[in-house]
């Protein structure tokens, strides 16, 4: 191999690496620096302030609660949707298109749509009142009704972001040759067994991608929560925003940001280990 072709790949990768470094690594390093320093002196004060805040533990709890409910729900729904789509004899493109509409809606807009549906004088209450199930405008999204508030946010998040999981799984399913399922059927496997023993294992790489992407994004949930609940349902990114904008305490906001990055990275590592696809399994 000539020297030139040995370096060519690196040369071609260089622009994107530089781009990433400038726009991602530099701000990240800067954020870490801010979170650990006070007027140039190293300190853990920001982290202490963060952890000592009244909203900190509720924010941690709420964020994790959302992640562990929203992500499995989304994967299950997306798996069901993708499998159904596969079975359609025709009209697949239209259904695919309709199901992916939420992808085009910004998260703040999605939050506002659901707020309009669920608020005191929203569509849900009008419908329930018309059916005689409630007497008048009822509040679902307040500090006093944490249960329904949570369900409201959950619904909005599931509606908004299931489509991305769905798209990834549809692409993954299309990569599995139909002969594998047919062979399983020939040898007597039921549809459920075929799904469990053939489709699901072969879908592992796509599931891994979808899970990592959705989990990382779920830890960063903010706009939907902000639109529906304001600060009644504190989450990590929301707290970072409040410390940055309202309290002007950049160090504490940076501490939150670092915490979120660490949690996301940890989740990614967990997925990569648990769902490791051994090289010999691919053919």
């Amino acid at each position: 191999m000539s020297g030139r072709s040995r370096f060519l790949p690196y040369l071609l990768l260089a622009p994107s690496v530089l781009f990433l470094a400038a726009l991602f690594v530099v701000p990240l390093v800067e954020t870490i620096a801010i979170s650990f320093s006070d007027n140039g002196a190293p300190t853990l004060d920001h982290y202490r302030r963060m952890a000592g805040d009244l909203n900190f533990w509720p924010a941690v709890k709420n964020t994790f609660l959302l992640v562990v409910t929203v992500v499995p729900l989304q994967v299950a729904i997306a798996l069901g949707m993708a499998s159904m789509l596969q079975k359609l004899p025709r009209g697949r493109d239209l259904v695919l298109w309709i199901w992916t509409i939420p992808l085009g809606v910004s998260d703040l807009a999605a939050g506002l749509v659901w707020l309009a549906l669920l608020q005191e004088r929203g569509y849900l209450n009008s419908a329930l009142a018309a059916l005689g199930l409630i007497d008048g405008p009822t509040q679902w999204l307040t500090y006093e009704t944490p249960g329904t508030l949570f369900v409201g946010i959950l619904l909005a998040e599931v509606w908004r972001a299931t489509a991305i999981v769905f798209i990834i799984l549809v692409a993954g399913l299309q990569l599995i040759p139909k002969e594998y399922r047919e062979a399983a059927e020939i040898f007597g496997a039921s549809p459920w067994t075929t799904f469990r023993r053939i489709t699901l294992p072969l879908l592992k790489p796509s599931l891994q991608t979808a899970l990592i992407l959705r989990t990382v994004l779920a830890f960063e949930v903010f706009a939907v929560v902000y639109a529906i609940a304001g600060r009644n349902f504190p989450v990590l990114v929301g707290e970072a925003y409040v410390w940055q904008r309202d309290n002007q305490a950049y160090g504490v906001a940076a501490a939150y940001a670092v915490l979120i990055v660490v949690i996301s990275l940890a989740a990614t590592v967990v997925y990569l280990r648990v769902l490791r696809s051994r090289t010999e399994e691919r053919s």
Binding site: E179, Y180, E182, A183, P201, L202, E281, S283
Partner: peptide
């Protein structure tokens, strides 16, 4: 099967 369809996993 003509293209084997041996389960890769």
């Amino acid at each position: 099967f003509q293209n084997y369809a041996v389960f890769p996993h």
